[in-house]
Design a protein around this nucleic acid. Structure first.
Lengths: 338, 338
DNA sequence: CTGAAAGCGCTAACAC
DNA sequence: GTGTTAGCGCTTTCAG
């Protein structure tokens, strides 16, 4: 439990030199550095983050604010971010808004203010104006992942294009009756994502000369269960049944596949199904999907933050970055059966 | 961005009083306290955690060490823990060992040592002796959740009893050929859990006068996919097919249900399936299971830590606590068809 | 390249 | 109940 001065004493240098040697800030002769590092190591000495933070103003810690944790997308982003942060010597402290109400407020009015973080990653968050301005008022780099945040640089896939790509895949196979399972009113208020994906679908349909309004649509809540229920409706009546379904998420697409089976429909023979996400279960279900890569998104977010922290850039570059995605064709889509 | 002395000045008291009023440590007259709190609030003042930690030795932060993040059990425990911590004014910083190798080492040799946490929650972790002793050497309260950690008080369900209960449910329904899908050699080395669950199964079978060795067994990796593959083997050959399957996790049980369907078997008519966990998808699949409650486990872990922190107990009470579980009967189990 | 010394913003004795 | 004051363990000018 020795402190920096014990290291200094044993290495025969001043504490200032130890600090410089261990942090890499300031010039130290290679020989001295080695000696210091050795002593520190043999003592099991690790800089106290609090003392260091207090003196330097840097915490080596970033906050991640999420609306939930136990959803594939969020936990994947965090996993990627965490990995990248560890490599950079940073900790990740988690602020989960799932509690709602008071807890949510306290995160913005208390926890984030205690100077414990150098930067913040906001994941798929729909924040109120007040919350955003509090975030920005921290005067710290903030980056959003997976959802647009007014005034905050954000990493996200282009949902319109992604949805268009998915729909075009079905169109290219020859489908002309393509149902859609998207967000409900509630989710549309909270996120742009479902609306954007629907827009992409509409665009693709219109470009193909088809009227999206006349196609079957049902809302789901982005879970397997929700997708199942929506699909049961969509596929339930023989007469209006589409030959293909575009679900706005893989989980809903999986629900669709399960519903089809339960209705005695074969996928893709009777109905093709495509999703969006690249969920870990997609391959298992043979689901064709447009993959996004949440772990890489987390890593990329960290990269941006590190860059910003390194250059002391107070300015928030409001350039939002569009992330890669790619169509993964599997067994759930095929040409319609004549 | 004012500091404590600005608050002190405006409230007309000393910084010591502000500190006492805001932290609750030490006596302050109600009137003074109110005044201080008001001023602090109107200034948007929040105590700097670093300065406070440095001076007091308490960080108001706990570390959570997990092997993965994107699995239902882990993220649920964390969600519960995080909620409880927020309420207590604590932050949760996450240490994800998923990276393996170097990153894993650095967590134990560097990150946890920088005095950023007051306590540690270790979730379902199988740690080396060295890692455990490093954890204990922190001199901080540590509690394990979901897996026994030598020398660390741990919260977990009694896996043997849980598995016995599941197996007994099948036996009570009249099944006598009960297959088991459990862990593989790799997972058995890393966790006791699969082995314990198998023990419970063995015990229940023997108690019913059945020989577990002669029953079909297949290893899975605790995912839906893994369960599917194992079940396909187990149910694949007509002659040796069991009338019921006990899977050591709900995800594997769900895989089993899906495999049964694909083999043209009806659940529960041709084969009953039971799992363990109370996974969020269990209800959707009509899966009978023995539920455990990971979010509550996370909350309970925090409760224990808070208690320990409050009483300054350096002693690790090595009393491990056994957690509640309960059988949830759904449509996937029924008497065997004569 | 290295050392001396002044804080960083709070807390906790210790007085009163 | 409240104020004074000496640190907590580092980092960072400023000299040299």
């Amino acid at each position: 439990m020795g402190g920096i001065d014990e290291v200094a004493r044993l290495a025969g240098v001043s504490t200032a030199t130890v600090s410089r040697a261990l942090s890499g800030n300031g010039a130290v002769s290679p020989a001295t550095r080695m000696r210091v590092v050795d002593v520190a190591h043999s003592l099991g000495y690790v800089v106290s983050s609090n003392a260091s933070s207090l003196a330097s103003g840097r915490t080596k810690n970033v906050g991640a604010v999420v609306p939930f944790l136990n959803r594939w997308f969020f936990s994947s982003v965090i996993e990627g971010a965490e990995r990248a942060l560890l490599r950079a010597g940073y900790d990740l402290t988690l602020y989960n808004l799932a509690g709602g109400g008071d807890e949510r407020r306290s995160v913005f009015e208390h926890f984030l203010l205690r100077k414990r973080v150098d930067a913040v990653i906001a994941i798929s968050l729909e924040l109120t104006e007040d919350e955003v301005s509090r975030l920005l008022a921290l005067g710290k780099p903030v980056v959003g992942v997976g959802g647009p945040l007014a005034g905050v640089p954000t990493l996200m896939i282009d949902d319109v294009r992604v949805a268009r790509l998915a729909t075009e895949h079905l169109l290219a196979l020859g489908h002309t009756r393509i149902g859609h399972i998207g967000g409900n009113e509630a989710s549309d208020l909270d996120f742009h994502m479902p609306a954007s994906r629907r827009t992409g679908y509409d665009e693709a349909m219109r470009a193909a000369g088809l009227a999206p309004e006349s196609m079957p649509f049902h809302a789901g809540d982005f879970t397997i269960q929700g997708g199942y229920r929506a699909a049961a409706q969509l596929l339930g009546e023989q007469s209006s049944r589409p030959t293909a379904v575009f679900a706005a998420s893989d989980e809903m697409a999986i629900g669709t596949i399960l519903a089809a089976r339960d209705l005695g429909l074969s996928v893709p023979h009777d109905v093709s199904v495509i999703g969006i996400d690249g969920h870990e279960l997609a391959e298992f279900f043979g689901l064709t999907t447009v993959e996004q890569f949440p772990e890489q998104q987390g890593e990329r977010a960290v990269e941006l933050l590190m860059q910003r922290l390194a250059t002391d850039a107070v300015e928030q570059p409001s350039t939002s970055e569009s992330l890669p995605f790619s169509l993964a064709v599997r067994a759930s889509t095929a040409p319609p059966v004549g």
